[in-house]
Design a protein around this nucleic acid. Structure first.
Lengths: 340, 340
DNA sequence: TTGTAAGCGTTATCAC
DNA sequence: GTGATAACGCTTACAA
């Protein structure tokens, strides 16, 4: 069996509680004893049993991460590895672990979350997506369990701390950029209709169109998955219109990749025949041909802030609800062009 | 505070131990009591505290996953989301949780692993990569802690259960496919030199060349990261040779994407000017132009088998060491062409 | 500054 | 079949 606090206590000729205090570096222990106890810990190769610690202190020091379902291929989007990078950095700074809730369907993930939460395996949850009428979100809220959302909550926006971009403004600015290039027939390829990110980006698009005094043509708006294939389907629909758009707002780089591929098959040139303004500025954006003009949303920072804010909520139950907005930047590359 | 086993016991007028037995569906409890206790559990909304259970039973029911460092962008490779899909399925079937060890540098990840292991937070570990002289692998082996590797161990191959493809054969078959198309000047773009997958695929490539009686030109062999940029750098080097190859073995689809992009910039045609045989058959493979001929290695199955075999090791300490080989398939698309 | 002892919510080993 | 009760390894009043 492994070395316990008692073994250390015995060897150092102190009480177990003293060892515990040394571990937590309590100021009420003399430097001398600390030194001695630490020495013994080292000699015996002691390592705290976190499970026992969790039980006694009622703290897991682990956060749970909720992914969209992995059957849904959208989960292959580089968004998740990038956000994970920020999360990883955050939890390492506060010496927390991360546990995943994932599965091939909604129920599986939901059960995962219930077990993490009720099983006391995590102190808080980061939701990596946000969508309408989400069972998990409702569950956590009902329990008043600490959690944050990356994205904008569907409802109770004022009650749930969330880390988001200002997607309305981002899409509005993107649209305005295209408008300024002289485009009027601008298409919109959104993600899943239930996702808040889709809803917001669409709103920004419409706002810009309306402010420019242009009609919002519903035929120009399509919804697809955040996937290469989504982009393919989306562009197919738009190009089949009697009067196809001259520019496109594509809400995800992966989709843009699909759009580009399909257009190439159709022997259409980007940006000569069609301008594309993409979102997320993932690693693909600068590697396509032409490189994509894309709105960078600083994905790792979304993850990092999620962790930081979750920790704040747990440490202080009276922590005010926050809406943290991560700034976005339009990265101009070569997929947009003046329209004459 | 939450409902405990004692609350249930009191309400059901039985002993806590009886409740515990009902939970584990012990055959020594009458159906009557089971029914009654279960009823009470439902009424009170009881959920077991897994932390307490872990402490008492000395089982975490959680597996740890070790990722390559997230600073290393290679971790953005779709390989990881795909392998996660298989792992997720596996752990859900056996009702286990998953905890991540990740970080921006080797030490961070190593510390993560030590904490998971010594902190008793996990019962076993899945290594999602394999490379030479890996500190973590050595640590786990020294402790005789249950773990499996996805890929081939650098050393002690006969002592570590691992889930792998037959990468030597895969690369050999791929090379032979190109040879049969009439290519003789075949280049090889590998991943990091320390990765076993690189070493094996290179070996297969060389074997095929030698068996065909062709010289292995070291200039034709380059090592890059499993990234789009890796592909770009790789192809740059090869095209700068006085006599560039007519066909390429590219050991990752993401790399192939980079190769394709660079070639397009250089106005070179695939497969007319250069044939490309790629690996992994990730979601990009069929979406590039031309679609990539790629060797499918069934990534989710690697993950699923990793979990299954890890569980077997934990359940039976005498479980024999295994080398599980997941079959590969050459998926022919449009990136390879006869050479005249 | 340190020690004693109760308790965290289970499981497991005895009894009966 | 079921009930006491002692672990599991730690934290944390409360004492001293």
């Amino acid at each position: 069996m492994a070395v316990t606090i008692k073994d250390v206590a015995k060897a150092a000729k102190v009480a177990p509680s003293t060892v515990s205090r040394v571990i937590s570096d309590s100021p009420r222990i003399s430097d001398q004893t600390k030194k001695r106890v630490r020495q013994v810990m080292k000699e015996l190769g002691y390592h705290p049993n976190y499970i026992a610690r969790s039980l006694a202190s009622n703290k897991a020091n682990v956060f749970g991460l909720v992914f969209p379902r992995s059957g849904n291929l959208a989960f292959q989007n580089p968004f998740y590895s990038e956000v994970l990078r920020g999360i990883t950095q955050g939890v390492n700074e506060i010496k927390h672990g991360i546990q995943l809730a994932a599965g091939s369907n909604k129920d599986e993930i939901y059960n995962n979350v219930v077990q993490m939460v009720q099983g006391r395996r995590v102190d808080g949850i980061v939701m990596l997506y946000s969508q309408q009428k989400d069972k998990i979100t409702n569950y956590l809220q009902g329990l008043n369990f600490p959690f944050v959302i990356i994205g904008k909550p569907f409802e109770n926006e004022g009650k749930i701390t969330h880390i988001d971009n200002d997607n309305i403004s981002a899409a509005k600015e993107g649209t305005e950029y295209l408008l300024n290039l002289g485009h009027e027939k601008i298409g919109f390829i959104g993600g899943n209709k239930n996702l808040m990110v889709t809803i917001d980006r669409l709103a920004g698009y419409k706002e810009a169109m309306e402010e420019a005094g242009l009609p919002v043509n519903e035929d120009y708006i399509v919804y697809e998955e955040f996937l290469i294939s989504g982009g393919k389907h989306g562009i197919e629909q738009l190009m089949n219109l009697p009067e196809p758009p001259t520019a496109l707002l594509v809400t995800d780089d992966l989709m843009s990749l699909g759009v580009l591929t399909t257009l190439r098959e159709k022997k259409m040139q980007v940006p000569e025949d069609l301008s594309i303004l993409s979102f997320n500025n993932s690693m693909f954006a600068e590697l396509t041909d032409p490189a994509l003009t894309s709105i960078d949303i600083n994905i790792p920072e979304l993850g990092y802030q999620a962790v930081t804010n979750l920790m704040a909520i747990i440490n202080n139950p009276k922590e005010p609800v926050k809406r943290v907005i991560i700034p976005h930047t339009l990265i101009k590359r070569r997929s947009c062009k003046q329209n004459y």
